[in-house]
Nucleic acid binder design. Structure first.
Length: 458
RNA sequence: GUGGUUGUAGUUCAGUUGGUUAGAACGCCUGAUUGUGGUUCAGGAGGUCGCCGGUUCGAAUCCGGUCUUCCACCCCA
């Protein structure tokens, strides 16, 4: 026997049923994006390496899939470089393209490249696969879909408010109630780092703080000490480790703590506006909470930070995230273009919906009606009816060969086709169709227009 | 990238201290039934035990490597 075929690590095949369920999520998200006024764009699955490299930090660069140059790519490489076996330097010589790592950076590139055709503020959504050379894990794949919505060209906080509502609307529509939209603000984190005199260690500080719910107070303290943050400084921020209360209480505490920091105070004000507004408007099913420990790795965020957690009791990493970036397009040469965006992790949302059994309503991908094939003459007669049914939007098909009846019936049964039509010489003579209901076994004879009505009404 | 884990029929899994021809259930194919599916009955096909190498008289079983699965860390959706 031939060697068993396989697919690469971290990739998946999707069966018809799985595709139907994924489509349901895509369609839901898409329709909400559209009702919020976003338009769809698409970008290539691979970009020039320089567009992507260095945008996601050192860790990110490692996880970008590089594409080998075509042709005899090694012949152009320098002898010494080849001998040095320096993978990093060699990569830049033999690979000039790389697979898309997320949708945000290609979007920034798009905005800069098409700035003269775009009407700002530009609201776009994008649903496409991305690739990361990560080690697969639960809810973690090497190829997965992101569903992004971003607005560039407006620094209004109303955009943030809009995005919180967008999250709420999508998850409510999906029947996934009780998700938590966590919010923070990069300026608050900067402010905290400032008052403890550790601005130079902002990233280390936030990364450590981000792990609070995972490794606890002591773990965070230990990691901060290891990163060279002084004990004195850690003591100052200690209140954050036991940060509880309502959003308003947290805001007030933060305002006090950050009173001496201009930037920190600004962050608190921004967050207060968003939280106050959302509290006034109200949400359908999601909760909005202020989470000072929320950091997110991407360092291009400058204002609001979002992350969406699955409802309590579901073990899953974040199912969405985003934030504001004041200078994302700056790296491509377009200054002063503030943007804010969010992302849905389709594959994880799928897993959560599956776990909670929320997929029941998704229609099975199957025809409504199968015509049994008794031979060419009968098939021709059936085909006329099939054309009529299809014109009415009824999914109909003829069994492709005049195989044994049992086999044809079995096919209908296996595919869960609700109706089967039998046409033999008797039916042709009378101009009728025998319709069999597969679930009840009931069998009735109809004229064509009666058949249409019966099937439409079922 | 670090540590652990997994792999036997299409699928889910058994397989004893290393010992005849590697099993079960479900699924698949054929027939009982040439115009009737699900149920039943009878029969049948299907395996390089992930792959490569080693130890041994003998390996699904022990050892090494490699790939894969899942998990934790790192990081992230």
């Amino acid at each position: 026997m031939a060697q068993k075929p396989s697919i690469p690590k971290g990739t998946r095949d999707f069966s018809p049923v799985e595709v139907a369920k994924r489509d349901y999520i895509f369609t839901t998200i898409k329709s909400v994006f559209q009702t919020f006024g976003f338009q769809s764009i698409e970008t290539p699955s691979f970009e020039n390496s320089e567009t992507l490299m260095g945008k996601y930090g050192e860790e990110g660069d490692r996880l970008i899939f590089k594409i080998l140059n075509s042709g005899d790519y090694l012949s152009k490489a320098d002898e010494n470089l080849l001998a040095s076996k320096d993978s990093q330097k060699l990569t830049s010589v033999i690979s000039e393209k790389a697979l898309r790592y997320d949708l945000t950076v290609p979007f920034a590139r798009y905005v800069v490249q098409h700035q003269n055709e775009i009407e700002f503020p530009f609201k776009r959504y994008q649903i496409q696969p991305v690739w990361r050379a990560d080690r697969p894990q639960k809810g973690r794949f090497r190829e997965f879909y992101q569903c992004d919505a971003d607005v560039v060209g407006s620094d209004s906080l109303w955009q943030e408010v809009d995005f919180v509502q967008l999250y709420d609307t999508v998850f409510t529509k999906l029947g996934l109630n009780g998700v938590t939209v966590k919010m923070n603000n990069r300026k608050i984190l900067s402010g905290i780092a400032e008052i403890i005199d550790a601005s130079d260690k902002l990233i280390d500080f936030t990364v450590a703080l981000d792990k609070l719910d995972k490794i606890g107070k002591e773990g965070v303290t230990k990691e901060m000490l290891e990163k060279g943050i002084s004990e004195e400084a850690i003591e100052k921020v200690a209140p954050l480790f036991d940060f509880t209360g309502t959003n308003q209480e947290k805001l007030n505490q933060l305002a006090n703590m950050l009173a001496s920091s201009v930037e920190g105070t600004k962050g608190v004000e921004e967050l207060r506006f968003i939280i106050d507004t959302i509290e006034t408007i109200g949400l359908q099913s999601a909760n909005l909470t202020l989470d000072v420990t929320l950091a997110r790795g991407l360092n291009y965020y400058t204002g609001a930070i979002f992350e969406v957690a699955a409802p309590e009791g579901v073990k899953m990493g974040s199912i969405g995230g985003g934030g504001r970036y004041d200078d994302l397009t700056g790296i491509f040469g377009l200054k002063d273009m503030s943007g804010v965006g969010i992302s849905f992790g389709l594959d994880r949302i799928y897993l959560v919906l599956e776990e909670l059994g929320l997929f029941e309503e998704v229609a099975q991908p199957r025809p409504d009606i199968l015509f049994i094939n008794f031979g060419n003459e009968e098939a021709l007669y059936a085909t006329k009816a099939i054309a009529k049914l299809r014109a009415e939007g009824i999914k109909s098909e003829l069994y492709p060969s005049d195989a044994k009846m049992k086999k044809q019936m079995m096919y209908a049964n296996k595919r869960n086709i609700p109706f089967v039509v039998l046409v033999g010489s008797k039916e042709i003579e009378e101009g009728t169709y025998t319709l069999k209901n597969m679930s009840t076994g009931e069998q009735l004879v109809y004229k064509l227009n009666e058949l249409l009505q019966v099937v439409i009404n079922s």
